[in-house]
Design a protein around this nucleic acid. Structure first.
Lengths: 343, 343
DNA sequence: AATGGATATGTAATCGATTGCGCAATTTAG
DNA sequence: CTAAATTGCGCAATCGATTACATATCCATT
């Protein structure tokens, strides 16, 4: 209904016999404009159902109020929760979030960043691909002076804001918990991937063992892709080898789930025979039987933090702030899969 | 490196001694430009590392290459998968996707739509809130002549493109499957919500019973919010009442999960004593014990379809096309929770 | 009365690309 | 060989808001 034409500041200006610049200033609360005209402008703006054209504003001012957000996979709980967290903060500040996914492919990653830049986003929040070793596309972002915040999957090759959880601590908590439950032969599922987070989890595992005077056993450490099938294969290998084990700390919930399946198929009791701990708090972990003990990464909070860092960097602009790195402390969610001693 | 200044079509024009309009046309492949100048333009564009400014283009042309996507909750598997599907198609056509979430709150929904319009998106793909009964904000989108595609949660109050799954058929398949497994006293978990999809599932349930000459029993139908706790409560109520039942078809996986928990807690065997079928194919359903039979809604494909409808509507523009409604056929995923007869 | 300084608003360029209109130059038709 | 059509490109306005700079008015100061 009403006019199909959108009203612009010129329409308001005409109606009030002032110029568009006055209207623009009035709408922005410029102190050089008298209160009376400000009021009048606001009033007719409302009457004419004025809505600012962000595109025109963006062209002139160079600020689009858009954040480009790049994740490996949109439809994975961890990432979609982070998107949610970012969206919540961005929305409250009248910013909007463009999402793209890389599917862990460098080419997609580069194209997405380029598309973001062409869309003239005000900055980028991203988690880098598993196999990405080349960071020129991100460097371009920084060279343009745009804020870049990395989360979860970060790299030391980029001097910029980062949000990660303390993977070491998460793994340490998980392993310590197994040790406290009486486990002494604890297997670990990890990956060869050159991502720091898995190295950190491995380190946490080793240090926990050390702190309990348990000698690490290389035969209990398995490397793969941390998917369900990997967990199944590792567990079968463990059983086949006859290597004694009474606990498994998997760096991924999926692999832990694979272990749970194979253990149950072989008539082993969880946690009595083998206690099990995963990592990431995937939504399914509370629904397994027994429910899976895991490490919560607080993804929504991670999204909030990433967004806050983003806006901090955005406001600092040229002031050359030192890139901030925020480390979120994980939480061990203890469920039945590892709880031998009833409290 | 290089210039910090972005190169524009004017820079290219200057270097070639032509005007910006010629450059613009050349880049767009306008047939009125000779092949030789086109080649020259392309060449220097590459040399100068030219990247088009979408904002400027958007202001003049009125097309932003942006799609506003509104979902109730970003971090739910069903919705994030649809976002993924939309993003895939949009990306391949050089469109970008802005996401927002309503959290099922009308106010958020209205604000998100308004924000999309202010960002001058080329159209909107949305799933309406559970409690939304007021559609003026969507009508404004249509009045502006922008494409609006609704998915999953739709309404007859809006004449526009829609993508839904055949909820009736999904429920019919599910219930028929239980009947074929020998169940005759099948409970149903549903909701009072005024959303068509649940009514359709109820209808599918009833019709399947009818086709098998099973008389519906009102005492076996439970209405709630379809969350885990609701499923638990309904199942406990069933057991308490002593109402005999040998199967449950839940309109949600979460409620089905609640049922599974309570049944197991009460020493009942699944599927021998009670066969169980859910709806939605939540990721956790394959990890429960026993794995949960459920109905696949093909969310990624639904996203693809929504995006395709969107672009169809976008290209049709003023040609006043009849709003298309696409119905996706669901698939029953049969797992151990309902499989009494081993095939 | 002349000068200075606020205060309030106007002028016009600008952001970068797009596009209707116009006009040469060249080709084709008759 | 001239008129008409086509080809290739320039001119300039435009999208809507922003902003550096200029200007006008009014009051206060000396």
């Amino acid at each position: 209904m009403e006019n199909t034409k959108k009203t612009t500041i010129h329409d308001i200006a005409e109606k009030l016999n002032v110029t568009a610049s006055t209207v623009s200033r009035a709408l922005k609360g410029n102190p050089r404009i008298s209160d009376s005209t400000k009021k009048a402008v606001l009033k007719t703006a409302r009457e004419l159902n004025y809505e600012p054209n962000h595109i025109a504003s963006a062209l002139r001012s160079g600020r689009t109020q858009l954040i480009g957000m790049l994740v490996p996979t949109i439809n994975r709980s961890f990432f979609s929760s982070i998107i949610r967290g970012v969206e919540e903060v961005a929305n409250s500040l009248d910013y909007r979030v463009i999402v793209s996914q890389s599917n862990e492919v460098l080419d997609n990653e580069e194209n997405a960043v380029k598309a973001f830049l062409n869309a003239r986003v005000d900055g980028i929040i991203a988690s880098i691909g598993k196999n990405t070793q080349q960071f020129d596309h991100y460097k371009q972002v920084l060279e343009r002076g745009l804020p870049l915040i990395l989360f979860d999957r970060t790299t030391p090759h980029l001097q910029t804001g980062q949000v990660v959880i303390d993977d070491y601590q998460g793994a340490y908590l998980a392993t310590t918990h197994l040790l406290e439950q009486g486990c002494r032969k604890i297997a670990h599922f990890t990956t060869e991937r050159k991502i720091d987070i898995y190295k950190e989890r491995y380190r946490g595992y080793l240090n926990a063992l050390q702190d309990y005077q348990v000698k690490p056993n290389e035969a209990l450490v398995f490397s793969g892709n941390l998917q369900l099938e990997d967990g199944r294969a590792h567990t079968k290998a463990l059983l086949r080898k006859g290597e004694a084990f009474d606990g498994i700390f998997s760096a991924s919930d999926y692999a832990a789930m694979g272990a749970m399946q194979v253990l149950k198929e072989n008539g082993l009791k969880i946690p009595e025979d083998v206690a099990l701990v995963g990592f990431l708090n995937e939504p399914f972990t509370s629904f397994t039987d027994p429910p899976l003990t895991t490490v919560n990464q607080f993804p929504i909070e991670m999204g909030h933090t990433a967004a806050n860092l983003f806006f901090h960097a955005l406001n600092a602009e040229k002031k050359k702030i030192v890139p901030k790195k925020t480390v979120i402390q994980p939480e061990l969610i203890i469920r039945a899969s590892s709880l031998k001693k009833k409290p």
